[in-house]
Nucleic acid binder design. Structure first.
Lengths: 331, 331
DNA sequence: CATCCGGCTGAATGTTTGTTTAGAGTTTTA
DNA sequence: TAAAACTCTAAACAAACATTCAGCCGGATG
């Protein structure tokens, strides 16, 4: 389990922290000023530094913006990859995990959604943005399509996996859009329910009947609300900060830009990182961290899937038998 | 059937034309330069005029941009309102009409979609944009919700109309987004099919079974492909340019910025306006024009709906009877 | 025909902003 | 400890841009 930071000198780590500090300042600045009116003075003010600093760490304003988009893209990719891995092999659980990831509080904040749309709009002009955005979208679509196809095959369904994946992707993007337009009125539960409604009406055995989908999903609660991940985080960190490894708490703290005291508190389970900080941790260490900490949550999701599947399959069998009695097998 | 242009002097008409010319130049300029890099010089170049002209017809660059957004919004509203009216009272046909309108070639062009997203992204900052965009979205959602609710009630379905309307809106927005990201790869038919797949799985009687929705929809063809609307347009125009009305072909031509010769060609059915020009016509005359010209197309859609409904209702009745025999009425 | 007036332009203006540069303060290295 | 390297800032610079304005041109008006 090698860590990226082992290969870097302290100077390089420090530079990396400054760059990230500026990138995060850029995100805040775009969210408050807008992309079009963004100036380096805004970024510097957010970062608490002088305007000229940007041209020191990034060659130009354009490069800062590209780096910001790359940062957001990497964060998004890492999150849903980890969620899918944690969901195990079941395609239904994987799709559910992707929906959860799409509305995960680390990504799905008013600030970040605003910034995403700013880049998306601008990507039509700037080829540098465009390529990156297209690659992200394609990767996400491919993954969705794969799980849909497997689900259709395993479940013996007869719909076009491309149409399903396409529709699901579009719905998620559209819900992000709704959130952009009016974050106050947006209800995350309702959004997830709409996605499940779509899947449930196509795959009733795995996602429950469409009728059931209108009932607020009491399961599949917010990841944050689950207790136990504080302990899991501490354990996962301890494994990585084992005495005979070169990395010590203070190194990790320096790598992610917090004090050593903060890291010690996490290890002592007396506090826990914000979701944003959690993303930094996963970046500084490895993506496996995500799975170890949040895996059990998705594991729970998976188990509920299996139970629901068994129940609805029973009902399905009875219904099918009833039709068979009349000699008119269901098409 | 009063026409707005009757109340305007020639000078006012001329001013209105220039304003629209500048607005359309702005749309092209944003599509090619992007919102952030847009300069008045770009707009002027697109319009074939000098940069200072903008501050003559609009007090400032900001006002030009607001006017541009208002123009797009009015066009969008008019289009789907007309489509819904033409669809008659059936909620299913209305929903189908709204889907058709959302991907209508007048609106759904790479240029306009780019510009829409540019404004949407910027709407997070500029309250002037924000209010307008929110109002448009709300109106569209309300309409969708209404038709969904009626469909659910009439059909005896048991899903939450809000979740359906929400999901459908999100899917349409998301498909626009896909188009933004990669217009080359986008297939309009596939997009419409995904929307119908969603509706079909919830309302199988009105939209056909989900299984059927994977077959390319040979019906519901593109509005443009229907012959006959050239004749309908000529007739509709003749009614409005009747000899004893004050408006003559040359007035109409001036109002929409074409030559009188062009209008005469439309009347003679020897040519037809582009979809964009059709939008101008409806604006200069009245929205009813849309219905007269394109109504029969949506009428055809409605008839196919009725036929499909009758066929699937028959099958449904048989199935229900089969279940009743077993004394286990379908829940 | 002379006059007037609105439409439009080219040049000028003042502001904003990205970038450069010289150098001060601090840390690291020899 | 001295020198070198690094980080960061303040000021200067140059380019881009929205906006203003004086005035030209062409058609309408008397």
């Amino acid at each position: 389990m090698p860590s990226p930071i082992e290969n870097l000198t302290k100077i390089e780590v420090s530079r990396e922290n400054r760059r990230r500090q500026l990138i995060e300042a850029t995100v805040r600045a775009i969210a408050s000023q807008g992309y079009a009116r963004l100036t380096l003075t805004d970024v510097a003010r957010e970062a608490g530094l002088s305007p000229a600093i940007v041209n020191f760490y990034f060659k130009s304003k354009d490069q800062l913006l590209v780096a910001t988009l790359e940062h957001l893209g990497a964060e998004y990719d890492a999150l849903w990859h980890a969620a899918v891995s944690a969901a195990g092999g079941s395609p239904a659980a994987a799709l559910e995990a992707m929906i959860e990831a799409d509305f995960h509080p680390q990504l799905f904040t008013p600030e970040k959604v605003k910034v995403w749309f700013a880049f998306w709009a601008e990507a039509q002009i700037q080829p540098a943005y465009r390529d990156l955005v297209s690659r992200l979208e394609a990767g996400y679509y491919k993954e969705t399509h794969e799980h849909c196809a497997r689900l259709i095959e395993q479940g013996g369904y007869r719909v076009d996996p491309a149409a399903v994946a396409y529709g699901l992707n579009a719905m998620v993007d559209g819900l992000w859009f709704d959130y952009l337009i009016d974050p106050e009125a947006f209800e995350v539960d309702m959004a997830k329910r709409s996605c499940r409604l779509f899947l449930a009406s196509l795959f009733p055995r795995e996602f429950g009947r469409a009728d059931a989908a209108i009932v607020p999903a009491e399961e599949a609660g917010d990841v944050r609300s689950h207790t136990g991940h504080r302990a899991r985080l501490a354990a996962a960190l301890k494994r990585r900060l084992h005495p005979n490894t070169p990395m010590q708490p203070r190194d990790l703290a320096a790598a992610i830009g917090v004090t050593a005291e903060t890291v010690r508190n996490w290890l002592a389970e007396s506090s826990e990182p914000s979701s944003g900080m959690m993303g930094r941790l996963a970046g500084a260490l490895d993506a496996q961290l995500w799975i170890e900490v949040y895996g059990p949550v998705y594991q729970g999701l998976r188990e509920r899937f299996e139970a629901r599947l068994a129940a609805t399959r029973e009902a399905e069998t009875q219904e099918r038998a009833a039709l068979d009695v009349l000699g008119r097998p269901r098409s």
